[in-house]
C-alpha cells in the first residue's frame, strides 16, 4: 500500500484473470478514501457487464447512497473499511437493504509490538482500535465475509503472517486473506491453520505472473482442498 505502481487497465487484467478461472473479482480502489474521491461507477459498470463472475467493489464507500449506486452498476457485493468507522451505521444500513451476503468487511491491519491495529485510508491512518477490540464493536452477524489484508506484507510477495490468523479465533465468519501471498504451498498452509479461511485474494503475484490462477487451483485440488476448476 505504498509506492503504488500502475500495472495495467482494470478491464484488460480482469479479462485475463476471468479467462484463467478466478472465482471472484475484487475491484478495490485502494486510494479512494485517502484521495477522498468518488467511487468510479463507470468503471464498475463496464466490468460487471463484461463478466459473469461475482464482483466485489470496495474503496471509498462512506454511505448507503454510494453502495446503492454500486449495486445498480451491477456489483454483487460491496466492501467497507474506513467508511465503517466514520459512519458506524453503514454496515447495518447496507445489510438491511441488501442482506449480509452482499457485504464484505474489509480490514487492513498492521503489526505493532502489542498487537494488530486496524488501519484505513490505504494503510496510512490508524483507525484507533486493536483488531480484537474492533471485531467486538462491529456487528459481524451483518456481514457476509471478512477480507483481511496485512498492510505490512501487502505488495511484498514475502508471505502472509500466519500468526495473524490466531487473532481471529472465535469469529464465525468466512475469511478471505490478502497481503504478500505468492504460492500454493503458502495458501495450503494458511488454510490448514484456520478452517474459516475460505479464500485468498492475490494482486501482485498475479499481476507480475509469479503464479497463475490455474496452477494454484490444480496444486490445491491435488492436496484435497475444495476448489472450482
Amino acid at each position: 500500500m505504498e509506492g503504488l505502481r500502475k500495472v495495467g487497465s482494470p478491464q484488460e487484467l480482469a479479462t485475463k484473470y476471468v479467462t484463467e478461472g478466478v472465482d471472484e473479482l475484487f475491484l478495490f480502489d485502494s486510494v479512494a478514501s485517502l484521495y477522498k474521491r468518488e467511487v468510479m461507477y463507470g468503471l464498475i459498470g463496464g466490468l460487471t457487464s463484461s463478466f459473469m463472475v461475482p464482483i466485489t467493489v470496495s474503496g471509498g464507500i462512506k454511505n448507503l447512497a454510494q453502495a446503492h449506486k454500486i449495486f445498480r452498476a451491477g456489483a454483487d457485493r460491496v466492501g467497507v473499511n474506513t467508511g465503517a468507522v466514520t459512519n458506524p451505521d453503514l454496515i447495518s444500513q447496507i445489510s438491511d437493504m441488501y442482506g449480509s451476503q452482499a457485504l464484505v468487511l474489509s480490514l487492513e491491519v498492521k503489526r505493532f509490538r502489542d498487537g494488530w491495529r486496524v488501519y484505513g485510508d490505504a494503510g496510512r491512518n490508524d483507525l484507533g482500535f486493536y483488531l480484537e477490540e474492533y471485531l467486538l464493536r462491529v456487528p459481524l452477524e451483518r456481514v457476509g465475509e471478512i477480507l483481511l489484508t496485512c498492510v505490512d506484507t501487502d505488495g511484498t510477495l514475502n508471505g502472509f503472517p500466519a500468526d495473524l490468523l490466531a487473532s481471529l479465533r472465535g469469529i464465525n465468519r468466512s475469511i478471505i486473506i490478502s497481503g504478500g501471498i505468492s504460492s500454493g504451498e503458502e495458501i495450503a498452509s494458511l488454510a490448514t491453520r484456520n478452517c474459516l479461511v475460505k479464500g485468498v485474494a492475490l494482486g501482485r503475484a498475479l499481476h507480475e505472473n509469479v503464479v497463475s490462477v490455474n496452477s494454484l487451483k490444480f496444486y490445491l485440488q491435488a492436496r484435497g482442498f475444495e476448489v472450482r476448476i
Partner: peptide
Amino acid sequence: FMPNSSRTEGSYSKY
C-alpha cells in the same frame, strides 16, 4: 527498508 506506520503529516505518502 520499511515505510512508516502512518501517513506523513502534510502529505499522503509514508515512505
